[in-house]
Amino acid sequence: MNNPAIEARGLKKVFTPAIRQPGFKGTVRSLIAPEHAEIVAVADVSFTVAEGELIALLGPNGAGKSTTIKILSGILTPTAGEVRIAGRIPYQDRIANAHNIGAVFGQRTQLWWDLPARESFAVLRDIFKTSLADHARRLDELDGLLELSSFWDRSPRHMSLGQRVRADLAAALLHDPPIVFLDEPTIGMDAVVKEQVREFLRFQVAERGRTIVLTTHDMSEVSRLAERVVLINHGRVVYDGGLVELQQDYGSGWQIRVVVDDDAALRDVPGFLAKEGAALVFGGDDPGEQRRLVRLLTELDVVRNLEVRSDDLEDIMATVYQRRAVPVAR
């Protein structure tokens, strides 16, 4: 295993927002003697990410994903626990850390709203003190991957969502950071742009060796991009491991629905569950048994229709969240 790019140990973050009572009286009171609630956004999060690895950080809304990403990127200081990003403590060493990381936070753009994107890129070049030659070379590569030049003379105000996110991805990578945090980058984008972004991320990991932490609610994105997932719920890690293992451990198994001319002989085949309308339903946990059954059925002349189903990743996630009340021991 490579050196860890990201190490998080026992992260905890408690927010204490002011509570405002309704009405004018409440407003005055909140100004004079504010009351504070205590919200535990992250209770106990530990994981490591190796250099050049892409992980998907998943969890339901309010699980603590975004707070975790903000701690990792150095924006928030944890209430307890430790973080190291490429060996540095991000919230203590922000300036040096800034060169190591890039980030896109959903639909929140870091581009200047009324400047053409190319000018925003130039401002970032000045802020990161990137040389003109390096900037031009990187911008050229990013343009090739994200087709930026067709819209980079427009300001974000006049861009479509897909264009803006592509411009933001470019902005996050212009200083060539080895570690990238992406908090729901493809939210609300159409299928074509989503695929372009996924291809872009695959390239960044495979060819540029970047480490990427991605949060998303799009499970097809997870299955296409990530081999490893970290699931967070109620501020705790409830699963950390391979996607395939997750499906095996928490999936409800395979299911085959078949419509045949004469179903009498098939009712005795192992795995038969029930007849639903015209279809016979088979199911089980053993993938080997599933393969044997598919071979058997495809050789039968009486088969009119055959449908093989596996668990939807979203269903698996829901199962994990419900079942794993106790966090994983690491």
Binding site: G74, R94, I95, A98, A103, Q110
Partner: peptide
Amino acid sequence: AEDTVAQHVREGRISYWFLRPL
């Protein structure tokens, strides 16, 4: 231009200010 400090704070874009070497 959605570029006042209050707007950045309210909409969470102020985060990016803390991710730059400035």
